[in-house]
């Protein structure tokens, strides 16, 4: 409950931080325009003939949605926490009676409105330029989209928290995370719609955590999901969230014990 009471103030201060770093923020957002690069490639592919139901319009819509969901779900916890552990500034955070991970979570969420302020005009311009891109999904899909995108954010946050905790033991967590990130790019739908993968791979893609981190909300937004797939996706997302919480909790507690044993 203390957390809920604290949230508005944490938000307010984090937001002040976002404003102080607004130039960096814009660059950050420009940095994650990878979906647009992928779009160019896929556009060239589907230009001659549609592929798996993707024509130029559908593929553009897909990657525009990817861009949006990516912005809504990205975290930078790994770098922040790594730095805190490496420099020992975590010590100061540990002396406050609130879990540092909660504070970070609130911090990331507070940046969301600003990201939208930068991103929405881009998307609106895109829609104004090519109105056929805008195809509002069904009401149920929009309703499911909210929990779906939240869980996608939470999963990403937990993954980064887990990798960051490894910094209590290792110095090369970023290399390890690069490995994870490579797999994520490939298997989450970031580089190519998951439908493009061979039929045999589909069941595996469905149960891995990656799909729930990007493709699930994107498909809801682009109208490619059915109520059945949406339900299964939500279930898988929830399952991995539980696993993620358990892993982070275990790693954090052990890591803190180690931090306390070897110097803070």
């Amino acid at each position: 409950m203390h957390l809920l009471r604290a949230l508005p103030d944490i938000f307010r201060v984090s937001f002040a931080g976002v404003v102080a770093y607004r130039a960096e923020m814009v660059i950050w957002i420009l940095t994650s325009t990878m979906p647009l690069i992928m779009l160019a490639l896929w556009n060239a592919v589907v230009d001659e003939a549609p592929l798996m139901g993707f024509g130029p319009t559908e593929i553009t819509r897909y990657f525009a949605a990817t861009l949006l969901v990516r912005q809504l779900t990205s975290s930078w916890l790994l770098w922040e926490l790594n730095e805190e552990i490496r420099t020992g500034s975590l010590s100061m955070k540990l002396l406050r009676p609130m879990h540092p991970l909660w504070v970070h979570a609130a911090d990331m969420l507070a940046a969301m409105p600003t990201r939208m302020v930068v991103l929405l005009p881009m998307l609106l311009a895109l829609v104004a330029w090519r109105p056929e891109l805008l195809a509002l999904p069904d009401a149920w899909a929009l309703a499911v989209f909210l929990p779906s995108v939240f869980l996608a954010w939470l999963l990403g946050f937990l993954v980064q928290a887990a990798f960051a905790c490894l910094a209590f033991w290792l110095e090369q967590t970023q290399g390890l995370f690069a490995l994870w990130f490579g797999a994520w790019m490939l298997l989450s739908g970031y580089l190519a719609p998951l439908e493009m993968f061979p039929e045999a791979a589909q069941p595996l893609l469905g149960v891995l955590p990656f799909r729930g981190m990007l493709a699930a909300p994107v498909e809801l937004l682009t109208g490619r999901a059915t109520p059945q797939t949406a339900l299964v996706d939500l279930g898988v997302q929830l399952g991995w969230t539980v696993v993620g919480f358990a892993v982070v909790r275990a790693l954090w507690n052990r890591g803190l014990a180690r931090y306390g044993a070897y110097g803070a």
Binding site: R5, S91, M92
Partner: peptide
Amino acid sequence: SVTLVMGQKQQLLWDLPASETFVLNRALFD
């Protein structure tokens, strides 16, 4: 009920006024 001040470590948010850190601490310490 305790506090630690280290001359070489800081808790203030670097790019914001100190008053923001105070507000944050108000929230964190409830």
